[in-house]
Design a protein around this nucleic acid. Sequence first.
DNA 1: GGCATCCATTGCATAGTCTGCAATTATTGC
DNA 2: GCAATAATTGCAGACTATGCAATGGATGCC
Lengths: 198, 198
Amino acid sequence: MKISLREKRRRQTALDIQRATLDLAREYGFDQVTTDAIAERAGVSTRTFFNYYTNKEAASVGHPLGLPEEAKRAFEAGNRLLSEDLRNLMAAHLEQIEDMQDIMQDMIRLARDHDRVKRLLDQFLAGLVEELKASLALRMPDAPDDLRRVLADWVLTGLGHAITDWVGSDHMSLQAAFKREWEVQSRVAEILLESRDG
Amino acid sequence: MKISLREKRRRQTALDIQRATLDLAREYGFDQVTTDAIAERAGVSTRTFFNYYTNKEAASVGHPLGLPEEAKRAFEAGNRLLSEDLRNLMAAHLEQIEDMQDIMQDMIRLARDHDRVKRLLDQFLAGLVEELKASLALRMPDAPDDLRRVLADWVLTGLGHAITDWVGSDHMSLQAAFKREWEVQSRVAEILLESRDG
DNA sequence: GGCATCCATTGCATAGTCTGCAATTATTGC
DNA sequence: GCAATAATTGCAGACTATGCAATGGATGCC
């Protein structure tokens, strides 16, 4: 309940602007789109556009969702198998994303052609890694730093692949894509273990 | 261009509230719906609800569109056959309404069961009649008052029927419904003339 | 090079909107 | 007639959006 009505409206406007940006970029090409045009399409003044985003690139990426707080806390306090709790945490995160396939699609497509957009996305992903590392630090305080780092990396790389698969095909749910990715990674893990054992 | 960004947003909010009202009424029945619930569904505070509408009934009817100013002026200055110019004026008005079939549907259904809503709708229709009378007064200043009154009545009764037909069946366009109604009325007019002649 | 133009970006003052709260007034079921 | 619930309204303050004007960068043309 911490999202006030104002915050809610704020998010909506931010989304409207992002949507406008992506739509115009798709229609005319990112470089042809002016901030004025975006503002107009979104139904706000140019000034307001800049109240929300520092530039077109930022607008096209929007304000991506972090890990859901609630699930994060559950994870940090969790006591089941680590991999299981991790899967739950990620599932909660995926759920948030699930109904933005169209936006994701445009965003990723855009990132392919525009480094500055791609960089923003990468930065955001890096932020998620940090977030997960922080949670892992609480969940397994005694584990060495680099283990947590690799683990967080591992999971979020999976997320990235899953999202890419998902936006590429409309018959697969994000959850399914992630599950598949997770399985692939698990198999890799097994192989690594075999070689260690052998 | 007279609609500022603020005015635009205002209209959107007014629409959101109306939509919320109609949706909730459909889901739970008009009488079970509280203003609080409407405000929450619409994403505004209760106070804001009352900034837009004086009560539930008003919210469910919204701020219906009057005759489009531009077309009205064209009509007033028109010099073709009166019936022709009238049809054009109405066509312009219908065009405005065309893409609100869902709202209309809920509104009319609601009006069937709720006198206070029905009264508002009737009042609104009466307002349209006045508007048209005023335009007719400019278009044909020399015609007697009661002739203009009957004419305006005649046209807007037709509009009412057309809208009812339209919301009742989704395969017919509003324009088509009005055309059909217009033809029926024309036939009636012919019959009246015949009897006069005979 | 230098100028004109278009667009991005920012600061600032102001107008306008939304909200929380509390008080007042119906309405309704019992 | 009395609670309880819902509808309304006033008000002051918090917050947001906007217009405008200024600055700076980039581009393209003479």
